[in-house]
Design a protein around this nucleic acid. Sequence first.
DNA 1: AGTCCACTCGCTTGTTTCGAGCAAGCTAGT
DNA 2: ACTAGCTTGCTCGAAACAAGCGAGTGGACT
Lengths: 226, 226
Amino acid sequence: MVQMRRLKPASRASNKAPRLTQAERTAISDGRMLEAAMALVLERGTHNTTLREVGELAGYSRGLASNRFGSKDELFAELIDVFNERWKKESSALVGSKTGLEAFDAANESIIDFMNDNSDYIRAMFILYYETVGSSTVMRERLAEQHGAYRRAIARYISQGIAEQTIKRTVDPTRVALQYTSFFFGLVYQWLANPDAIEFESALHDFRDAMIQVIGETDMAVRRSA
Amino acid sequence: MVQMRRLKPASRASNKAPRLTQAERTAISDGRMLEAAMALVLERGTHNTTLREVGELAGYSRGLASNRFGSKDELFAELIDVFNERWKKESSALVGSKTGLEAFDAANESIIDFMNDNSDYIRAMFILYYETVGSSTVMRERLAEQHGAYRRAIARYISQGIAEQTIKRTVDPTRVALQYTSFFFGLVYQWLANPDAIEFESALHDFRDAMIQVIGETDMAVRRSA
DNA sequence: AGTCCACTCGCTTGTTTCGAGCAAGCTAGT
DNA sequence: ACTAGCTTGCTCGAAACAAGCGAGTGGACT
């Protein structure tokens, strides 16, 4: 059970006036509520989280979450957007200007890094991802859009790898991309259901190696360099 | 929108007395309600399906679904159990007494068959599977149990394959099993989000071939027959 | 063997509780 | 005084539970 202590509400009565703009104020309360929502989703899933709890855990009233986000669905959509933003930033920081196989490996490692540092974050994110799949068409379309983006990103790395002759030219990038994303989503799914049973990092490395063994140019079928 | 016509309630006033036991009676109404629940989940997801609708679509009253299953969660748990039962039957029919690589391929094909014949069924089943992952601990444990069973089954086929020398003896069955189940769950997940983007059958075949290329004895790295 | 009563059990209906969502109201800064 | 962030009041609907209804059944008594 999450301790329902109310966080101090935005310290408005501070001695030196913080001098905030309106946008900054709402950003603070929104942030607090999103954080609270994440904690609650982690603990009980979206289903058993109420907007009342979100508002109160964030240090506000019963109704604020409703008032700001309009609906539960929109709150969670917002959460997913925040997650995606942060993920994209993390990933592109590690991939940088790399291309092809190198970029692919960097992306792979960025997932592992992100996972190690923010496993709760990731957990909540994917709970949202998976629960959304049975929702309204609107939500599902956004999800499909995201999935497509992942697949395209991977496919691009593979194409580059072919151009750079680190990957066999007989390989179909979109098929490989689908294999990779499928493996990844499925791995996370099983990890969510039973974290103890899944060795996340080594599973990803194993899969990467197996994949390169199939799609890499023969002299490339080596262990990734640490 | 599902047409909300009430099905004829169990024809008790039949001319030749059906002479049913209590257990048979409840089995009929339970079955009708599970069927209704499936249809509604398919159409709107678990979220937007009410117990009232389930009962009424099945041809009964507002409250029966509640009365029988106790809670929404338990109804869906029951649905999952029914699905699993049917799946297991289908699968073991095709696997039969096969072992090793043959059994693995048969299992793979059974999925494809089941998919082609009952895609709605599967769809509903996995919506439930994925939505459950963020639920209460009890539910998640059942899910974890299921996942573990799948992994163990695949691992057994791999082990047999090693014994039969169709699969390299350097292969770790549990790792390969995890790769396979991950791929499968992730593929279904993306298919749920966007059925049009995913070519289910060929994706499974592709993956199977890639896997065998890695784990099969060199002379085994051939296309599956048919 | 036939009649009747009481009981069982599948199903319904009444009711409570609680969450989502909306609207109107309040209040601290400008 | 006005704006804008936040709260409170309220309505609607779903879940869950309890009490009730009624058809069919078994047992007792004649």
